Amino acid sequence: MTLFEIIILAIVQGITEFLPISSSAHLILPAELLGWVSQGLAFDVAVHVGSLLAVIIYFRHDISNMVQAWFRHGFSSRQTQDSKVAWFVAIGTIPAVIAGFMFKDWIELYARSALVIACTTIVFGLLLWYADRAARHRKTLTALSIKDTIIIGLAQAMALIPGTSRSGITMTAALMLGFDRESAARFSFLLSIPVILGAGTLATIELIASGQAVDWLALLYGAGFSFVSAYLCIYLFLSFISRIGMLPFVLYRLALGSVLLWFVFA
């Protein structure tokens, strides 16, 4: 990859990891549509490390409170709000882990195509629009229950299909359950931490086992630009989502999906 491609892909990864528009779709598309060389496993690891650091640093106080509360009250009858959320993040991650082990190879073989991305981009974009329009937007994270968590976790597992968007489908589920936009986004971002960490760890193990040469400078650029763009994305998204709603992202998904369909069938 050229330096230009590295920077563009890293910025795209950082932005789309947390917006409801699918990061996997945007990282696959340059190779599908522009003929760019596949970024490879090492680069995937680097940009995910950048995104992971961004979300951990942004939510560092929440994470610290959750971890401390979990160790103090996690196994007692005197659960606090922070210890509950810590449990909910762990429980909500389980469906994605199970689905990943069961269907990862099948998805890699059959689902990573421009046609699949186009269809899921449009379908789940419309679902996000419906959820945002129909939702009551009343519940906050203090009202989160184990039932809500399981439903959102099952939705997150569907994000293994490229074009679905992990953040998009989890926010859609949370909105349908009556949560306000900011609470839906915050829980989605917290849920991303173990998922990104797990995916990055597995990719790192695979990378080490492969023994392939690594361009460390390229990885440094990838991680750095991914971190900056992801951090800014989280900050701006949480600052404005209550006011702007999901419609801009829905329209983007519909436009992107339509362009992809044109490329596929042209």
Score class of each variant (00 low, 15 high):
residue 54 A to M: 07
residue 22 S to A: 04
residue 38 S to C: 03
residue 5 E to V: 09
residue 6 I to P: 01
residue 43 F to V: 09
residue 4 F to I: 14
residue 3 L to I: 15
residue 58 Y to R: 02
residue 26 H to A: 02
residue 3 L to V: 14
residue 48 H to W: 06
residue 44 D to Q: 06
residue 41 L to F: 07
residue 3 L to Q: 11
residue 62 D to C: 08
residue 63 I to Q: 13
residue 25 A to D: 05
residue 44 D to R: 00
residue 61 H to P: 01
residue 25 A to L: 10
residue 51 S to R: 06
residue 47 V to T: 11
residue 31 A to I: 05
residue 22 S to C: 03
residue 16 T to Q: 03
residue 17 E to S: 09
residue 44 D to K: 04
residue 73 H to V: 11
residue 58 Y to G: 02
residue 23 S to L: 07
residue 39 Q to D: 03
residue 53 L to V: 08
residue 21 I to S: 02
residue 13 Q to G: 09
residue 2 T to E: 15
residue 8 I to D: 01
residue 39 Q to E: 05
residue 24 S to M: 13
residue 35 G to F: 05
residue 66 M to R: 13
residue 46 A to C: 06
residue 7 I to D: 05
residue 15 I to D: 08
residue 66 M to I: 09
residue 24 S to D: 15
residue 20 P to Q: 06
residue 53 L to Q: 01
residue 35 G to N: 09
residue 49 V to K: 06
residue 57 I to V: 12
residue 71 F to R: 13
residue 63 I to S: 15
residue 37 V to Q: 15
residue 63 I to F: 10
residue 15 I to C: 09
residue 35 G to Y: 04
residue 36 W to S: 00
residue 25 A to M: 07
residue 30 P to L: 03
residue 39 Q to R: 10
residue 66 M to Q: 13
residue 72 R to V: 14
residue 62 D to M: 10
residue 14 G to L: 07
residue 10 A to F: 04
residue 30 P to N: 00
residue 24 S to R: 12
residue 43 F to G: 06
residue 49 V to R: 11
residue 49 V to P: 06
residue 29 L to K: 00
residue 62 D to T: 11
residue 41 L to W: 11
residue 29 L to F: 04
residue 2 T to C: 09
residue 40 G to D: 07
residue 70 W to I: 08
residue 41 L to S: 08
residue 76 S to T: 13
residue 58 Y to C: 00
residue 59 F to C: 10
residue 18 F to K: 01
residue 32 E to D: 05
residue 35 G to A: 05
residue 57 I to L: 13
residue 27 L to P: 08
residue 71 F to V: 06
